[in-house]
Design a protein around this nucleic acid. Structure first.
Length: 427
RNA sequence: GGAGAGGUGGCUGAGUGGUCGAAAGCAACGCUUUGCUAAAGCGUCGUAGCUCAAAAGGUUACCGAGGGUUCGAAUCCCUCCCUCUCCGCCA
């Protein structure tokens, strides 16, 4: 969340930057400021009374020891107590309202975030490789996966409903090979520590990373237990250090985690999309970083490069785009999306979104570090990016490496993980 | 799920109604002494809010969480949560 002091002291800047996101969130600035003013007024008044009460209470203690009758003062203090209670309620109420409001205000886009109204204005940053040229009409992954008995969409529907899939045989094995390949790459080559987190998380964790309170309708909830299925490993992994004061010497902290991700995709336009493109459950390897504020932009570049490395090693053509102010996510200050080419789709698919959240998440989750010089507790910056999403990587992979005879030739990097060089029809 | 024990500052641990944000020890940091190390001495050493132009200072809150009793609560009462041990169940 945004620092209320920043809103107070640099109101115009905050308003302007929020405005760049589009919509009308910027209008919440005035609301939060007026709430803040009443809150502080109530607080100050309350504290003056409490101070008075503390002082007199001590005097009563002394007087009683000397055997004096203190009942008149006590009666007087009772009325002060009542006023304190009332003011306390008022202050607590205003504080809660301010907190709620602050939690629903998105992050400020960074100066380095390109201005723009919508996805159409996202600039392309770079392109790697070229679109593969096939000597035949490419099949899409649904056809390929079904023919090779790797993907069973009907079974997914039977067991769990639409937008669920069953991987089987070589498909299940390929998925597992990809997971291992990605984790090994990031842990042994890029210096990330592997994490295997719980898949059910508390609401506090989701507030910390920004999914709650605003996006509850996108989450699967286990109401009996007050837990949610995670929509991304970003949630448990970033929250590993929630409410901690970390030693700056250990920064940057770099974590890599494989987890399934669960998303309701309520109201999502693409939910009817054919195949694996948009599922309620999909696998993902997520990269998370916690670093010093001055390092976060450089870390974002590294993080993005680490995710790109996946596609390079797999020989998949991709492009990197930068999200403009009108398109970046709720908590993000700057985001790169990596889109891989899928020949069967004839389009680019987003397989990674790498974001610098600045101190937006760490403030929400009270994650801090003690500054070596000033000894003050400051908020570190958090980042995360997919490294990468598996389902769409699967799509790009089988569609790119499909052969004229309907088999799939796997790229060399994956062969040791898969245990074979190609996937053929098992029958 | 059943029974019991317990939750106090980075850690250990004292504190059963008043001057306690909290003794003491350890750890950490700074200074002094010291050829280095070690040791000793002195000092500093929680978090958040409000106030203040800022710093200093002042002030409030926080002893698992939330309520209650009281002029006054770490301390008394209630509810909840968590941890540990044992039993049951279980991958």
């Amino acid at each position: 969340m945004l620092d209320i002091r920043l809103i107070r002291e640099q109101t115009e800047t905050v308003r302007t930057r929020l405005r760049q996101r589009g919509g009308d969130v910027w209008t919440l600035v005035d609301e939060v400021l007026s709430l803040d003013e009443s809150r502080r007024k109530a607080e100050t008044e309350k504290q003056a009374l409490q101070s008075e009460r503390n002082r007199v209470s001590k005097e009563i203690g002394f007087a009683k020891k000397q055997g004096q009758d203190t009942s008149p003062i006590e009666a007087e203090m009772r009325t002060i107590g009542d006023r304190v209670d009332a003011l306390n309620k008022e202050a607590a109420d205003l504080d809660a309202r301010q907190e709620t409001l602050l939690l629903s205000i998105p992050n400020l886009p960074h100066e380095a975030c390109p201005a723009g109204a919508s996805a159409e204005e996202n600039p392309e940053v770079r392109v790697w490789g070229t679109k593969p040229v096939l000597a035949f009409a490419p099949k899409d992954h649904v056809v390929l996966g079904t023919e090779l008995k790797m993907l069973d969409f009907e079974a997914g529907v039977k067991i769990s409903g639409s937008a669920f899939v069953v991987y089987r045989g070589a498909g299940a094995r390929l998925e597992r090979a990809l997971i291992n390949f990605l984790l090994d790459l990031h842990t042994t080559q890029h210096g990330y520590t592997e994490i295997a987190p719980p898949l059910l998380v508390k609401p506090e964790a989701l507030v910390g990373t920004g999914q709650l309170p605003k996006f509850e309708d996108q989450l699967y909830a286990c109401e009996r237990d007050g837990l949610y299925l995670l929509p991304t490993a970003e949630v448990p992994v970033t929250n590993l250090h929630r409410e901690e004061i970390v030693d700056p010497a250990v920064l940057p902290i770099c974590y890599a985690a494989y987890t399934p991700c669960f998303r309701r995709e309520a109201g999502s336009a693409g939910l009817g999309t054919r195949g694996l493109i948009r599922m309620h459950q999909f696998d993902k390897v997520e990269l998370v970083k916690i670093c010093l504020p001055q390092d976060s932009m450089e870390e974002l570049e590294k993080l993005t490069a680490n995710a790109e490395r996946v596609l390079q090693l797999l020989g998949l053509h991709y492009r990197v785009i930068e999200l403009c102010t009108g398109d970046i996510g709720f908590g993000s200050a700057k985001t790169y999306d990596i889109e891989v080419w899928a020949p069967g789709q004839g389009t680019y698919l987003e397989v990674s979104s790498c974001s610098n959240f600045g101190d937006y998440q760490s403030r929400r989750m009270k994650l801090r570090y003690k500054d070596a010089e000033t000894k003050k507790n400051l908020f570190p910056h958090t980042l995360n990016g997919s490294g990468t999403a598996l389902a769409r990587l699967f799509v790009a992979l089988v569609e790119t490496y499909q052969q004229a005879d309907g088999s799939i030739a796997l790229p060399p990097a994956l062969q040791p993980y898969f245990g074979a060089a190609e996937i053929r029809n098992p029958s």
